[in-house]
Amino acid sequence: MTDKMELLKRTKLFVLDMDGTFYLGNQILPGAADFLKAVEKAGKQYLFFTNNSSRSPRDYMAKLEKMGCPITRDQIMTSGDVTIRYLQTHYPDKTVYLVGTPPLVESFQEAGIHLVNEKPDIVVIGFDTTLTYEKLSNACTFIREGALFLATHLDINCPTETGFIPDCGSFCAAISLSTGKQPKYLGKPFAETVEMVLDKTGFSAPEVAFVGDRLYTDVATGVKNGATGLLVLTGETHLEDVPTSEVQPDAIFASLGEMGQQLCQL
């Protein structure tokens, strides 16, 4: 692992996970707000990126504001944003059957994605907390009939204040078992996410650090795409998980709070 202080010094943009990294449920994790102040004081920037596609960017902005952490629209990005951009770029004229929450549906509609309930060209699976058997069955049928199978992100579980709940990757596992088809995943840790962050911010990959509590999404986004991957131990990953992981972080911090304290020493 690279020297922590050197990594922090060279990083110009911190791309922060949310669930399990910045907050848990409706509580900002200790020291996380101070980290943002330390980033600004050091003349650096931060951007929130969540794989959780169940809410819209506006929802996340409202949630953070209630916690006393107001941000602008250009400081929040979701796997839903990446998926919309991917569809606009590669399949602009195709129809989509979306398995998602009302906020995700609204985001797709506002972006001009042509949503249908019959004979779609593409099926997109999101983290649908309003999932029904009918939606699941429809998705399987359309994929069997030849629709392209996309998913906003691969997270298996979503952390909450009371434990973990099934996430998008779990839904996709059921669909894959039923259809024999595997999805193309977007969101973290895939290149489309890094490309969107770099395009939107103007930074180069070596200037960016992806920070989060998951090795296979947050950290992997950095280490597999030419950026930095920093692990915090406030969510899913425990220190004993690291030695056996295929993905190795560039550095490990107890929390954003610890990162903030070290930033202040630069």
Rank of each mutant, 00 (worst) to 15 (best):
Y216E: 12
P243L: 01
P183K: 00
M18D: 02
S204Y: 02
E236M: 11
G68R: 06
L233H: 04
Y97S: 03
N225F: 07
V197W: 00
S170V: 06
N138Y: 09
G31N: 08
L104E: 11
F35E: 08
A191K: 12
M1N: 00
I125A: 05
P92M: 14
L16K: 05
F49P: 09
I71F: 03
D155R: 01
G257V: 14
R214T: 11
D34Y: 05
S54G: 12
I143A: 00
L198I: 03
D34Q: 08
L98V: 14
K94C: 11
Y91K: 11
C264K: 15
H238K: 14
Y97R: 04
D218F: 06
V219E: 05
F49N: 10
L13T: 07
P70Y: 00
F253V: 06
A191P: 02
G235K: 12
T95A: 11
M196H: 08
V247M: 00
Y60Q: 04
E40V: 14
V208N: 01
V82Y: 04
L239N: 01
I125R: 02
R73D: 15
G68C: 09
S204H: 08
Q262I: 13
A220F: 05
L13H: 03
E236N: 08
L256T: 10
L263H: 09
L13G: 05
S170W: 08
K4T: 03
A173H: 15
S56W: 01
L186A: 07
V197D: 02
P206T: 09
Y185W: 13
S79E: 11
K4I: 05
Y60K: 02
E240V: 12
L29E: 05
D93C: 03
L104M: 15
A38K: 13
T21G: 09
D155C: 05
P243M: 02
Y185G: 07
A254F: 10
I71M: 03
S245N: 09
M5P: 01
I165H: 12
E195H: 04
R58V: 12
F108M: 13
L148A: 06
C69A: 03
E6K: 13
A254P: 02
E110K: 14
L98N: 13
T217H: 07
V208R: 00
M61Q: 11
D81T: 13
L148G: 07
I165G: 12
S54K: 09
G222E: 10
C158M: 14
A174R: 11
G260Q: 07
Q248C: 02
F49D: 04
A205Y: 03
A42N: 14
E240H: 14
